[in-house]
Computed example of a mutant assay.
Amino acid sequence: MNQPPRIAFLASRTPEGQAQLAELEQLYEQVSPDEADILVPLGGDGFMLQTLHRHMGLGKPIYGMKAGSVGFLMNHFSTEALIERLQAAERTTFKPLEMVAVTEAGGSVGAVAFNEVSLLRQTKQAAKVRIHLNGRVRLEELVCDGVLVSTPAGSTAYNLSAHGPILPLASDLLAMTPISPFRPRRWRGAILRNDTEVRFEILDPWKRPVSATADSFEVRDVVEVTIRESKDKTVTLLFDPEHNMEERNFDEQFTV
């Protein structure tokens, strides 16, 4: 007979998250993340991203429950039959992006992104960006408010708001999407293989400064940003079978 999984509940500091944590702690045994078989964050997608960044090194599967305004990466909250839900949950494994940003001062800053890496203009001046793919210039000059590279898991977040494509989670693809492009007017981005190395070269960075953000980690005054899918880091999310990631992607594309 299978032993029930050991659970670490992690709650956002919102009143809703803390109330859910109190309910669950009365019904189920709580252990530390290091001792757990499964991590259960209680919050919205922002808190899920915090959990992924904080506990990725543990290699534990994560089953989120919604206690926030946005919960695309979360299951619905219920205190009933949680052990059975965890045992029946479907696994979705994906790799994050790794960003290396070079600043005007000559420093190099690395970060990991589960949703997207985005570049944004810092002032009223539009950014000018040259795009390299696997060492070859593919777009000589993009004039825009910004540009982003999204994972399949993040393609329904900022990428979708910028009119980028929704990617199936198992597609081994990345989405590159411009943010308010001015030139070239007809360029709407690209779908890339996940093994593509993307390098953004900032043109005229002193007059047109640009920041780079990996999920919520920002680096300002960048002159060059390289992005590639991680070769050795993975995360595993758990979802109820009736509302798995594939079904959520369909819902996003066909719900009006």
Rank of each mutant, 00 (worst) to 15 (best):
H53L: 10
T92N: 14
G71A: 09
H76R: 08
E116N: 03
L73D: 05
M74T: 11
S118C: 12
L97N: 05
V109M: 05
G68I: 15
A113G: 10
A89G: 08
A101T: 03
H55E: 07
T103K: 00
G71R: 02
G64D: 06
G68R: 13
V112A: 05
G43P: 01
A88T: 11
A81S: 11
G71Y: 07
Q50C: 11
S78P: 12
I83H: 15
G110M: 00
A113K: 00
S69G: 14
Q50L: 08
A81T: 13
A67V: 11
V102H: 04
A101N: 02
T92S: 15
A111R: 00
G59F: 08
P61A: 09
T92F: 15
L42H: 04
L97W: 01
T103A: 02
K60M: 05
V102S: 12
V112Y: 03
T92H: 15
V70S: 07
F47P: 12
V102G: 06
M48Q: 08
V70D: 08
A105Y: 06
K95V: 12
G46I: 00
L97H: 03
M56G: 04
G57N: 07
F94A: 13
L42I: 06
T103L: 01
M56T: 13
E90L: 11
G106N: 03
R91T: 15
E84C: 06
G57I: 00
S69E: 14
V100M: 14
T93F: 10
V102Y: 01
L58Y: 07
R54I: 06
M56A: 11
P61K: 02
P41N: 09
L52Y: 01
P96V: 03
L82R: 09
